[in-house]
């Protein structure tokens, strides 16, 4: 038996909204420690890694580890029915064929129960090594989201350069070229604050289309942490009370 009660159901709605355009069918791994998932987008350019810690749920029980194959598209449809103030219970019997979702209103005035049919999906779990990155940028998630969105008007590729003092977002397109440079600072204003942890200068190129999809998670966390090393995927980490959502994006290289 697996059962998890989340008092703040809105966070689950936001998580699923943040990944549904990247991954459509995923295996959730449920253990006594956490609910987790790892899935690549269809073109294998991006990877989503989600961990929700059991200790952060109001109630949590998982008698035996289980893999739950879920259609994210259909889960998103059902979660739309949950109110923003609703609590959400996730429940599955051992060797389950359905995932039961229960949405309860704040004053217990209304309860909705749905059984989502589970899928049997091939597991393609990748081993991602723990690694030190050359550069780590911590900044406002809404500011990063705004920069990516605005630069998308110029071209489809973002050139990201980080040194010990600043981070530069540069683009080059048919209409011209441009860049936005932000210096490391410890401003009281969260949208201006930028923390750099850089051992080596790094300069890499990434598809803005994917960064824009990742930035849907800016509603989950005020900050985003970008981890960069030459010639490996960039990691965008959004941390929140319940756990963390990480996106990996393979770089573009000059032909």
């Amino acid at each position: 038996m697996f059962e998890a009660l989340l008092g703040n159901g809105l966070i689950l709605k936001k998580i699923i909204e943040s990944i549904k355009e990247l991954v459509t069918e995923v295996n959730f791994e449920v253990t006594s420690e956490a609910i987790s998932l790892q899935a690549m987008d269809a073109s294998h350019v991006a990877l989503v890694v989600l961990v929700l810690r059991a200790s952060e749920f109001e109630e949590y029980r998982c008698d035996r580890p289980q893999t739950l194959g879920v259609s994210i598209t259909n889960l998103a449809k059902l979660l739309k029915i949950a109110g923003n103030d609703d609590s959400i219970i996730l429940r599955a019997e051992d060797e389950a064929h359905v995932l039961t979702l229960v949405f309860t209103g704040k004053n217990n005035e209304k309860m909705c129960e749905f059984n989502l049919n589970l899928l049997t999906l091939d597991s393609e779990h990748l081993g991602i090594p723990e690694q030190e990155y050359s550069a780590e940028v911590t900044m406002s998630s809404s500011e990063f989201s705004r920069i990516c969105r605005e630069l998308t008007q110029v071209t489809d590729t973002l050139n990201l350069s980080v040194d010990k003092e600043s981070v530069k977002f540069a683009v080059s397109g048919d209409i011209g070229t441009g860049s936005i440079t932000m210096k490391a600072n410890n401003s009281d204003k969260s949208e201006e604050k930028l923390i750099l942890n850089v051992s080596d200068t790094v300069s890499m190129a990434f598809a803005l289309r994917y960064l824009n999809l990742f930035n849907k998670a800016s509603s989950l966390s005020d900050e985003v942490v970008l981890s960069l090393s030459p010639e490996v995927p960039v990691v965008l980490k959004f941390a929140f009370d319940l756990g963390e959502l990480k996106y990996f994006l393979a770089p573009k290289i000059a032909e």
Partner: peptide
């Protein structure tokens, strides 16, 4: 011209 790499080139 930039070529897009894929995730499984890095992790498996």
């Amino acid at each position: 011209f930039a070529v897009q790499l894929i995730i499984i080139d890095f992790y498996d």
